[in-house]
Computed example of a mutant assay.
Amino acid sequence: MKITVIGASGLIGAKVVELLTAEGHEVVAAARGTGVDVLTGEGLGEALSGSAALVDVTNSPSFEDEQVLEFFTRATTNIVAAAKNTGVGHYVVLSIVGVDGLPHSGYMRAKVAQEKLLTESGVPYTIVRATQFAEFTDAITGSMTAGDEVRVPDALIQPIAADQVASDVAHAAVSEPLDDVVNIGGPEKISFEQMVRESLARRDDDTKTVVVDPEATYFGTLLQRNSLVTPD
């Protein structure tokens, strides 16, 4: 089966390429470094030619509200058009668990716009929504740190290993389109407090005080307790 992975140079994209190749599929690894530009559409037709499925794991270089919305809107519009022109039969996109429940986040609004463009395109699709990557928990901890204090939301998080995300995305790519959303998450739902304490312990950092604050934000956005975890 011929499959095009767009965003193949990223964390998940590289893993998906490796998994699908190991399974014997013909994989086209598409990225700016291979001459494919999702913002201009350059190279998309060639990259998708003859492919039965495509995997979209692209990400915006900027997380500023206007820029990230512009990126996902333009990129998805171009990929959808190229998919239709080349007869791709399955569009798999990686998204985020809870994405439609956090409208005050510019990034989440942009991902919702991406999903909407796909679901209304007429191209058969599967949306894989994942919880936050376990590999990013230290960065999340850093984002909540000010001096010797880490202020965390009174909410849950469900870290999932990037390898598992890539495996689930690769599985979706070789399966029939669902025309629906699949939610995937890590094995355990834990508090932000626990996540931060584990992150600090890994780095032998005992200088920080962890404070649970209902007004603390996640990258500028207030959370409900279950905003970022898979449904029961």
Rank of each mutant, 00 (worst) to 15 (best):
G101A: 09
G220N: 02
A52W: 00
R203N: 14
A22E: 14
P159M: 04
N59P: 00
S227P: 15
P231L: 07
V99Y: 13
S191M: 01
E42A: 12
I6D: 06
V112D: 04
V196W: 05
T126M: 02
K116E: 13
M108I: 12
A113D: 06
S121G: 01
G7V: 14
G147T: 07
V165A: 08
V174C: 02
L39C: 08
I96K: 00
P124W: 05
V92C: 02
G10V: 09
A172L: 00
D148K: 09
A170I: 03
I190R: 10
A8E: 02
E26M: 06
R32D: 09
D100H: 14
G220F: 02
G41F: 07
P177S: 05
V210Q: 07
A113Q: 11
V92D: 02
V99H: 12
S199I: 14
V174Y: 01
M108H: 15
V36D: 02
A81D: 13
D232Q: 13
L223M: 05
V182G: 07
T207I: 03
V210L: 06
V27H: 06
N78Y: 00
L222V: 01
S51W: 13
Q194G: 03
L48S: 03
L11G: 05
A8V: 07
A14F: 10
T217G: 02
S121L: 01
L200E: 13
E26I: 04
I157E: 14
A110S: 11
L39R: 11
A47L: 07
T76F: 08
V152E: 13
D154H: 06
P187F: 05
V28S: 11
V92F: 03
G43C: 05
A83R: 03
S95L: 05
L11I: 09
D180L: 05
F136H: 13
I3V: 15
M1Y: 05
I3Y: 10
G24K: 06
I6C: 11
A30F: 12
R203V: 05
G41P: 02
V181W: 01
K84D: 07
K2Q: 14
V152C: 11
I160L: 14
P153H: 11
L69S: 08
T126P: 01
K116M: 06
H104V: 15
G45D: 03
F63D: 07
F71E: 04
K15R: 14
T58I: 15
T126D: 01
L19K: 08
T141F: 11
E188F: 12
D206C: 04
R74Q: 07
D163N: 10
A52Y: 00
T4H: 03
R151E: 01
L156P: 13
R202E: 14
S199K: 13
V80G: 01
R151K: 10
P231S: 11
T77V: 12
E135L: 07
G41Q: 09
K2M: 13
G101F: 04
